[in-house]
Structure formats: structure tokens, C-alpha cells
Nucleic acid binder design. Structure first.
Length: 119
DNA sequence: TTGCTGACTTGGC
DNA sequence: AGCCAAGCCAGCA
């Protein structure tokens, strides 16, 4: 395959992320067969065409340490708001508990109310 | 082809 | 806990 179609693959994958769950850039990259291309995934989303921006749940894609680095930008603010609205707990610092909210393609359902493990 | 850029990741301080 | 430096990869001039 001469043309991997990296970006289209990214968009298709992101669109499958269920509400109330999140995925990391590295995770998306690995899922489409390009492990290590986390950075490229970020670039792809940054260059998302207008017609896709409204149907693409870009806010469900976060960095491994939490919400995108641009936490001072409007983007991050909106992202936190959208995620929180879907039931994802976003801390004030912007980081998310991936152990609870990270989307695992292998496990169907499990969305909406992730089990809170009490110690 | 080379070189630079970026919504990243990991490891070390 | 947060900040810095190096390593990765795809897209574009």
C-alpha cells in the first residue's frame, strides 16, 4: 500500500470513541497501525478540515498525562467542558484518570459509568 | 532529497 | 508535583 492514508485513518478511529470515554494520541496511533506516531496524530487533528471538526469528537483525544499541552488555550478549556459534560472527571490541573476513562476497544460497553474502585 | 514543524511520549532532575 | 531534553513519526516547503 503506497498510501497509508494516515490522517483519514486517524479521523475514522477518533470518530469511534464512545461518549464518556477518552483515548490518548499514542493509543490512536497504535490502533491504526502506526505505533509511535502519536505526534503525527496530534498534527492530523490540528489540521482537521472544517467539515470534519463538527462531527469529530476531538475532545476525547488527550495526551498521556492528561488534556492537551495547550491548557492555557481556549481549546483546552472547551475540551475540559465537553469531557466533563460527558461524565469524564477532569481535574483542575487538566489531567484525567486514564485507568477509569481510557477507551479500551477490546471491552465493549463499560461506558457511561466506569466502576469506581474504592480502596 | 533534506530540513523544519508540531493538539506527543518517556525518562531524568 | 512540575519543568527540561531527547526520541518518534507524518506532512509540507
Amino acid at each position: 500500500m503506497t498510501k497509508s492514508g494516515f490522517r483519514p485513518a486517524v479521523y475514522a478511529r477518533v470518530r469511534k470513541i464512545p461518549s464518556g470515554r477518552v483515548a490518548t494520541y499514542g493509543q490512536i496511533a497504535a490502533e491504526i497501525g502506526h505505533p509511535g506516531a502519536a505526534r503525527a496524530v496530534g498534527t492530523a487533528l490540528a489540521q482537521t478540515p472544517r467539515h470534519l471538526q463538527r462531527i469529530l469528537p476531538w475532545h476525547r483525544v488527550i495526551a498521556s498525562h492528561g488534556v492537551s499541552r495547550a491548557r492555557d488555550g481556549e481549546r483546552a478549556a472547551l475540551q475540559r467542558e465537553l469531557l466533563r459534560d460527558e461524565g469524564v472527571a477532569v481535574r483542575a490541573s487538566g489531567h484525567v484518570d486514564l485507568l477509569r476513562f481510557q477507551w479500551n476497544p477490546s471491552e465493549r460497553q463499560r461506558d457511561g459509568a466506569p466502576k469506581v474502585r474504592h480502596k
